[in-house]
Design a protein around this nucleic acid. Structure first.
Lengths: 200, 200
DNA sequence: CCAAAACGCTACGTACTGTTGCGTTCGGCC
DNA sequence: GGCCGAACGCAACAGTACGTAGCGTTTTGG
């Protein structure tokens, strides 16, 4: 039953205490965030669920918002570049599908719901989110648009920022306000509705 | 100096104590919400600023979220129907401009920022917002679309809900996440980009 | 093996919540 | 003018969570 703590490094080395602690805190925070949002997230609950002392949490993060942002950043690592497809439409659909999927089928959706007020209000969190998430997505859209212009699919004066907002805005609007479902058909519906306005 | 409390009802009758109390609470809540968001809104601060006893506030609203929603609903009363214009474009721009203006130039924007997490998480608040705000706007879009179809401007199978999300989603996306400005040019930019996808 | 870092634990002072009981004031009505 | 109920103010309270401090214990890394 007991782990041998073998001195032979095999597949993975035993994680350090520090990283185990951090992982436990983030996991507990993820769970609590997805259960009841930031409003009811308390450091004491995180400490209780993760089995970590409260003081240890405060040694790493100043506030529960910092902690929640760490969870978010942890997620965003999974944002990957969109593979080159056979056209602007399919590439944009693929990009949007990545966001819709992670927001709709993982706890990231609930984390975002609980965190959005803090993201909108807190200047530090706002900047961090823009730099680490928004900028990445705008960059992806820019690449796709660039290729689309070269292929003659899109107008050369295409407003990348506007296109990006038109694509992702409705997704978050559903998540936050309208309550619409983030289903698999949504990405294609949005792209098909938006694209004519930018096509040659 | 003293108010005469004239028995002659002139322009407006002297408001009752009850309505004065309610107005003072809502005004203080508005101020505090716009200053630091729901996160830092406390009933005790509202009581202190409004000059009303804490117990009086709890007699009217169960929680600070209920209170914040009351402020929001108070605002939404100002949403007016869009006057018939000379085409789908101008009518949609007018509708969108109303939202952009109130979100960008009044405290409603900050109130929304502070409240959105609770709106997304709390089932009661979510439903109230959908029924009292989202439904109104969808209804307005529906009227405009209906007239547009009759005039032959829009396709008969126009998806009203999708169009509504494409119009308002980017606005809230700016307000909450991307941090873009809610300027006067935004409504027209959005409408011009979206409309081709629904035109005949 | 040993110093430094990281962690666990207890105990605080502070702030806010949501409620209770009771005295006071206001508003309408006879 | 006087009365009565509703609404409000006020003080006090238990409960929860925050964020910090001190100190002993475990882990890490050289």
């Amino acid at each position: 039953m007991a782990e041998p703590a073998s001195s032979v490094p095999f597949v993975a080395a035993t994680p350090s205490r520090s990283s185990r602690t951090e992982a436990a805190i983030l996991e507990a925070t993820r769970e609590l965030l997805s259960e009841s949002g930031v409003r009811h997230l308390t450091v004491e609950k995180v400490a209780a669920r993760s089995g970590v002392a409260k003081t240890t949490i405060y040694r790493r993060w100043r506030s529960k918002e910092d902690l929640a942002l760490a969870v978010l950043i942890d997620f965003v690592q999974s944002i990957v570049a969109v593979p080159r497809g056979d056209g602007v439409r399919s590439e944009l659909v693929a990009l949007l599908r990545g966001a819709v999927n992670s927001l709709g089928t993982t706890v990231m959706g609930r984390v975002m719901q609980g965190l959005v007020s803090e993201l909108a209000t807190n200047e530090d969190l706002s900047r961090a989110f823009r730099e680490r998430v928004v900028a990445l997505r705008v960059g992806e859209v820019r690449k796709i648009v660039q290729r689309g212009i070269e292929r003659g699919e899109l107008r050369p004066d295409t407003d990348v920022d506007l296109l990006h907002e038109l694509l992702f805005g409705p997704v978050y609007y559903r998540l936050f306000l309208s309550g619409g479902a983030l289903d698999r058909k949504l990405p294609a519906k949005i792209v098909d509705a938006v694209l004519p306005g930018f096509s040659v």
